[in-house]
């Protein structure tokens, strides 16, 4: 049976049920700037109104509706909680694709740096060297600190193609962070 399936286009997730705009659903202004506690409170406030547990003694039909809203609330929160996902949503909903797999648009210099970091991570893993890992993390963080204001201003200016370029670079760095964490867990277990 396994030959019956091939994976199609990468994950198109199910649309938001009640309205598809996470900002609107959570009652928040559209944009990058958002204090975490404001988002958290908006999310909890929304769930407090729509969660099916609030309607546990109601009919199936009503609970189905509540469940659609609660599902949409979770999806909206997930989309907005991490700044990189929030930026992704803003860029994509402006009609610009991020082509995560495609790195041809990256400057060669940036790609070289990536490769170098990756090699360092592999070495640190081989030598079980947590200090080296911390060193790389520090370097990545400095790179991120430079890129974030750039991403935010591109988005604020609605310069979507350039925003997408910066976004792709930040996404690269995020993946590196994940790899480092994986190495760290592997060293501990």
């Amino acid at each position: 049976m396994s030959d019956a399936l091939t994976v199609g286009a990468p994950g198109r997730s199910g649309g938001h049920g009640p309205g598809s705009d996470p900002f609107a659903l959570l009652g928040l202004p559209r944009g990058m700037s958002m204090a975490p506690h404001v988002l958290d409170e908006a999310y909890r406030g929304l769930q407090a109104r729509v969660h099916p547990d609030r309607y546990a003694d109601k009919t199936d039909a009503e609970r189905r509706v509540a469940m659609q809203w609660a599902t949409a609330a979770n999806e909206a929160y997930r989309t907005l909680r991490k700044p990189l996902l929030r930026a992704k949503y803003l860029i994509e909903s402006a009609g610009v694709g991020l082509g995560e797999q495609d790195n041809t648009a990256m400057p060669a210099e940036f790609l070289m740096q990536q490769m170098e970091w990756r090699e360092h991570v592999a070495e640190a893993r081989a030598h079980r060297d947590d200090k080296a890992l911390r060193h790389i993390e520090h370097a990545i963080r400095s790179a991120e600190v430079e890129l974030w204001p750039l991403l935010e201003s591109r988005i604020a200016e609605a310069d979507w193609p350039h925003a997408a370029d910066v976004w792709r670079r930040l996404r690269f760095l995020e993946k590196l962070h994940d790899d480092i964490e994986d190495v760290r867990s592997a060293l501990l277990d």
Binding site: R12, S13, G14, A70, T71, E75
Partner: peptide
């Protein structure tokens, strides 16, 4: 560790 309730869809195609 996704928060419940959740709905997710994925598209597949024939082989």
């Amino acid at each position: 560790n996704a928060t419940l309730p959740i709905a997710r869809a994925q598209e597949f195609t024939t082989f």
